[in-house]
Design a protein around this nucleic acid. Sequence first.
DNA 1: CTGTTAGCGCCTTCAT
DNA 2: ATGAAGGCGCTAACAG
Lengths: 345, 345
Amino acid sequence: MVTIKDVAKKAGVSIAIVSKALNNYPDVSPKTKQRILEIANEMNYTPNIVAKNLSSKTQKTIGMITSGFLNSEGKDNSNIFDMFKGVYTGVEEKQYELAIYLTDTLKQQQRSYAKFCQNRNIGGAVLMGIRVDDPYFTELLDTNIPCVLVDINIESHYENIGSVSTDNIKASYEIASYLLDRNHTHIVVMAGTKAAYVNSQRLIGVEKAFKEYGLEVSDTNVLYGNFSEEEAYVLSKEYLEKAKVVPTAFLCFSDLMAYGVMKAVKETGLKIPEDISITGFDGLVINEYTQPTLTTAKQDFYEIGRQSALLLQQLMEGKKVDTKRIVEHQIVERESVQTLTKELK
Amino acid sequence: MVTIKDVAKKAGVSIAIVSKALNNYPDVSPKTKQRILEIANEMNYTPNIVAKNLSSKTQKTIGMITSGFLNSEGKDNSNIFDMFKGVYTGVEEKQYELAIYLTDTLKQQQRSYAKFCQNRNIGGAVLMGIRVDDPYFTELLDTNIPCVLVDINIESHYENIGSVSTDNIKASYEIASYLLDRNHTHIVVMAGTKAAYVNSQRLIGVEKAFKEYGLEVSDTNVLYGNFSEEEAYVLSKEYLEKAKVVPTAFLCFSDLMAYGVMKAVKETGLKIPEDISITGFDGLVINEYTQPTLTTAKQDFYEIGRQSALLLQQLMEGKKVDTKRIVEHQIVERESVQTLTKELK
DNA sequence: CTGTTAGCGCCTTCAT
DNA sequence: ATGAAGGCGCTAACAG
């Protein structure tokens, strides 16, 4: 392996100058810098990143810490992988390094996130799928290393904690309006986990839309299905069996839950969208393959990941930036929603 | 951050002993070893991996190099991510480190795989989606660092190159037999890219099954759809329009292609499986959501990834092991295949 | 501008 | 069985 020493020798200078020339220090004569660069290039030299990390004070590696996807069943994998690719791309754009840590609440061998970062000279972390009550999470925050949270927003006194997400309020407002515009009035909301941040945000959006149409989100209209297909299936099935009046639409806070509802609805003998309309949230690839295809609020996971990495880098460099970043979503119209004829009162 | 020096000081010994005690060197008195371990534990010490990598001669980090998934459209993501999780798990099991490198033929900023590894003190690499004619690939092989290839098998003179995959011959043999057992005789094979290794393997399996039923795989029965949905759609559509006799089944070398065929078949007004049966290959999550659900040869991508990492570690440790490893697949029966009544001749 | 000198945190001979 | 010293490849003061 060709090292900085080799380059220095060949150029007839000290390794210090080589280091400076390569790292664009201002106090190097243009001539020698030029020469060093040429020689380094000619020798096909590239610095050893491990050594660089160890000696350098400026941390150039980013940790991506995710929880809950290691044992996931693969259905929502495409999201996570897109997000991952986004993070990877954002990290690479600026020549940072990426270290990955996947965990799961079930996993025995739980390591502290803080330790993970310390042991690898990690200067900042992107966190996905982390719960705010995760003790390792708060420990990490206390180390004061910059973090960017995906889909979480904590009221923090930390100024180097950023967050990136879809505008959940807006997106759910739009998807609700989409249904309301098509004259749906008896809408059941299949919400997610009550405690989840995104869930409350999406509820706010729905309520806002309802209000504009003189409707209210009463408790009977909301089911809490913890974002999973199975739970949504069970809840919607039960709902449909007990309901005196069949709703005209289910508004789901995740595509997976929409699939669960679809299954329940079909089993009840009702047709989608003729008898019941359904909307999702996320934008999974599967949406294009279900029957009918699913209308949804599609999140741009790749860009969410990329922006997370970019924002984190700015925080790591001490730049004063808006710590909250929003990524555009998109309402994707497909077949699962029916336009109702307006009822005359 | 607590370093080895801190532990040494507190234990009243030199850092050399601490290092040895922590790394299970034989020449440390049980007593001091015991004491050091206790103190290290009590101080919550964990070694800095960057420093370890730099100083240690034994390479403990594995590179995962993948090509072609960075800009993929996201449909086959679940595979890759499952594979990735498998690699991650396998790497973590043995306390190795993982460095990831995603690339794409389209990508401008192409770096050499060998350099990627050298710069990070990477001692072995898992390669996925790499083409054998990739110049960076051969360059990497020449560096003589152990590699494990997923889904590729090169005739190599290298003894430290392993490979892990599904038994493609067996799997395709079984899926073909599955159709033949159900009395399908007019089967069209929607194959993948002609040059691909897995493609030729799967063809062998199909031919073997056909032969046992006195059939032959003539050219007219095989379409080459480069594994993509779009291509398969176009080819099958064209085939169906021109065909004098409608085949009873399409045997596809990927689930994605099966979706393409499904689309074409439906557009032709034929029903699945009543008029035409279809089988896939891979085991994507989407299979459960298509209408009808898809019968397929499901690969265990997670385990393929995990075994790759495990095999690689053995190669890195210089162990003499079988460099070729097979991971069990599974024929998953769903709705897309019809059992035909046997024709009397 | 350039070179010298210390490290970064750890592993690893080689004496003791 | 233990410790001293050198080094991994690089960056970062500090002199000159």
